[in-house]
Design a protein around this nucleic acid. Sequence first.
RNA 1: GGGGUUAUAGCUCAGCUGGUUAGAGCGCCACGUUGACAUCGUGGAGGUCAUUGGUUCGAUUCCAAUUAAUCCCACCA
Length: 875
Amino acid sequence: MKDMPKVYDHESVEAKWYEKWESSGYFHAKPNPEKTPFTIVIPPPNITGKLHMGHALDNTLQDAIARYKRMAGYEMLWLPGTDHASIATEVKIVEALAAEGLTKKDVGREGFLKRAWQWREEYGTTIVKQLRKMGSSCDWDRERFTMDEGCNRAVVKVFKSLYDKKLIYRGDRIINWCPDCKTALSDAEVEYESQQSHLWHIRYDAPDKSYSIIVATTRPETMLGDTAVAVNPEDPRYKDIIGKTVVLPLVNREIPIVGDEYCEMEFGTGAVKITPAHDPNDFEVGRRHDLPIIKVFDERGTINENGGAYQGQDRFECRKNIVKDLEASGNLVKIEDYTHNVGTCYRCHTTIETIVSKQWFVDMKPLTEPALEAVRSGAVKFIPDRFSKPYFNWMENIRDWCISRQLWWGHRIPVYYCDDCGGTFCEETAPEKCPICGGKLRQDEDVLDTWFSSGLWPFSTLGWPDKTEELDYFYPTTTLVTGYDIITFWVSRMITFGMEVMKKPPFANVYIHGLVRDSQGRKMSKSLGNGIDPLEIIEKYGADPLRFSLVTGNSAGNDMRFYWEKVESARNFCNKVYNAARFVLMNIPEDADTHIREELLDTADKWILSRLNEITRSVTDNLEGYELNLAAEKIYDFIWSEFCDWYIEMAKSALYGEDLDRKQTVCAVLIRVLSVSMQLLHPFMPFITEEIYQQLPGHEETIMLSSWPKAEETDKYARECAAMEIIMELVKSIRNIRADLKVPPAQRISVRIVSEKPEELTGTEGYLLKLAGVEKTDISRERGTVLKSDVHLVCNGAEAFIPLASLVDLEKERERIGKEIERVQGDIARANAKLSNEKFVQKAPEAVVNEERRKLQNAADMLQKLQQRLQTLQD
RNA sequence: GGGGUUAUAGCUCAGCUGGUUAGAGCGCCACGUUGACAUCGUGGAGGUCAUUGGUUCGAUUCCAAUUAAUCCCACCA
C-alpha cells in the first residue's frame, strides 16, 4: 500500500525527472559509435528561456516525434533550429547593449553602428536577422542564432563554389532605403501608411511641340531621373508616337516614348513617366527597354549632382520647387487630390526611398531542378502532402535570389576588391593583398541573407566540410519538423543546397505544423502583446498538459488557437491518469506477481487486454502516419473511458473480494494495462508517464529506453469482447432507466436477464451489481413469467426485466416502449431501403451489404421483443 | 493578379483512401460524495456537416461553381 496525495503534483515530478534525465545525459546526447537508438538528440521537454508559442509548438512536436521514434527503435536527429540555439550569446549581446546605455534611439546611429561591427568581430559570425529590431530593447525577437567557425567555413565554401560555377553574380536591384536611418530595409520592414497627397498631371512636349503627352505622378521630384515615358502599346491615343521622343521639362533632356504592357490605359492619363533608379516597376520597364538609370537622390534623400539646379535640396523641398517651376513653365496641367499608400520605415516612419544598388544574386534555375526532382520522386515527402504544392509553385517559378543584405550581423560576403587595379576576388580565407597588383584589399561590406546560411544547416551544423562522424551518421535525417510559413524560405533551400552540396536530400520527411494563435485567431506578436509565455503555462499547469494540449485537438498543418481551458482539461487528464495509477499502486502488494495466467482471466480481463492490444495497434499506426493528434486522442480515450470508467470499476470486486487467484490476476492485468498505456502516452506526456512507469513493479529503468509495445495480430478474445458489449449496454440501459424513473442511487434493484447464450454472460453478474446498483440478478435462456410492472430493456443480444412495481407508471412505460419501437422501426426502414435497392445489393461490397443485413436482423429481433412487451402491457 | 487553406454542436476542433444512429473537449441542464479521482461520477439537451449543381447504388467525405473568411507571393504611376 502506498501513500500518495490525492492530486497530481506536476511541479515536483517534473523537477525530479528533468534533473535525472539531464544528469543521465539523455538531453543533447552525442551520437555514439555503436549507433544505438540512444544516439538521438533529445531536446529538453521542459522549455527553458522565454520563447514564443510557435517555437514551443515546434519543440513539442519535434520532441514528441523523437520520443516515439526512439522507443519504437527509430533514430532521429534533433538539433536546435535557427530560432532556438544560442540564447546565451543573445543575452550577452543584449546585456552589452544595455551596458553601453544604448536604446532604441541609438539604433542605426553612428555609435551603435560602430559597436555592432566591433561585436561582429568579437562574436565571430553571428547571424542576426534584422538586428535593429533586437537593438530596440532587451525584449527582443528570437530570430537569430550563432554560427561557430565551422559553420562559417561551410558558408564561405559554398559561396565560393557557386561563385566559381558562375551561379553567383552581382547585379542591379531596387532596394528600400531609409534616408533617416541610412540603411537598407527589407520589404518586410517597410510599413505602408495611407497618406493624403496629390496626383500631379505634367505635360511633356515633343521637341518640335507637334505633339505632347501628359503623365500623372505622385512624385514629381523624381522626374529629374526620368529616362522615358511609357504608354500601353495598345492605346490608340498614343500608338503613333511610340518610338518618338519628348523633352523633359525643367531638365530639357530628350527621352523616348516606349510601349509597355505595364502601363494601364485606364489609370490617370494612360501615360507613365519612367524613373528606373527610383521605382521598382520603372526599374523593370527600364530593363526591358534598355533605358539608362539616373540616380537623383543621395543616401540622405537630398538631390545629388544629377539634379542640376536642384542639387542639395531635400527631396520634399525639391518637390515643392519642382511643382512651382512646372507651374511657371506651364507644364503643370492639373492637380488632383489623391490618397495612396506610402512606404515608411517601420522604425522611424520616415518615407522610404527606393534606389538602385549593386546586389549579389544566385542564379537559382540550375540549382532547383535536383531539388524539385527530390520531392517529385518521393525522396522527400511533405506531411501533409498538400504542402508540396506551395513548394512546387515556388520552385517551378523560381527567381534569382538576392542574397546580399545591408545588415550589421551575419556572414560577410567573401568577396574582396582591390581599389588599385579594380580586381574582384572570391576567397575562402581573406587574402592579405591583391594577387594581381599587390594592392590593399577591401572586403564587401554586405552580409548574406539569413536563409543562405540556414539553408546549409542540415550539414553545416554537423561539421561539413570535414568528414565527421556526426555528418556521416546524421545526414540525411529522418524528419524535419517545421511550420508552413517557412517552406519556401527554409525548407526549399535546405533541399536545394543539400542536393547541390551533399548530392542527397537532407531529410526524408517534412512534417508541417500550423501556428499557435491567440484565442481570437490572431498571430501572437510582441506588438499586439498577445503572446503567451510557455513558462507561465508550465508553472500553472505543467509541461505535460502544455504539450498534450498542443498536440491534440487539431490536425497537422492547421493553425490552432490557444485556450487556457484546453490546457486545463489536459491537466485534468493528467490528474485522472495519476489517480488511476494511485488506485493501482494502493491496491497491489509491493511484491506483486505481474505474471498474467491466461487460464484465470475472466471476461472483463480479456476484454480490457483485447482493447489494449487494439489501442496499441491504432496508436502505433497513427504515429507511423504522423497523425499525432489521433494517436494522442486514442490513448486518452482508452485510459479515461475504458480503463478508468469500466475496467477499474469492474476490477474492484475482485480486489476487495476474497479469491486470491482472482486478486492476483486482476492486479497483474491492471499493471500490464497501466504500464503499456504509459508507454503509449509517453511521447505526449513524458514526465507523468516516467513517474508512474517506474513505480510499477519491475520497471527500474527509464521508460525512454523501454521498447515500444507491440500489438498482437489476432484478436483471440472476440467472444469475451462481444459479451462485454452486452454487459456494458445493459449497465447503461439500467442506469438510464434508473435516472428516468428517479430511482434513488442508494436503492438496489433486481434484474432478470434473458439471453440466448446465457453461458457467455456467466461470471459477469458481479459487474452489474457493482456498476448498475443491482442487488440480485439472474441470467437465463427462458423468458419466464413477465409481469406488467416489470421494466423491459432490450439490447443487442439480451433483454432485461426489472421489477419496479412501485415506481412504474404503466402509461409511461407503454409510451417509452412505444418510442423504442419507433426508433427500431426507423432502423429497420433504413436498412430495408438499402437492401431493397437492387443496385445497392449488386454494386456495394459484400461486407457492407452483410453489415446492413445484420443490422436489419438485430433490429427485427428487438422489434419483436418490444412488441411482445407492449402486448403484455396492454393485456 | 498568381498560388494555397478553411467553412461540421453555443465555443474550439476531430472525422485516413465515400457506407457511422456524424464524434471529442469546453460550456449548458438534472442528479450524485459506496473507500483512485469534485482537477470526479451518472444521465441529458444541442448539428439539414456554408450554398447550389454533378459523379455514384450511396456524398460530411470526391468534382465543379457560388458565398464568406484567411495565408503566402507579386503589385498598387
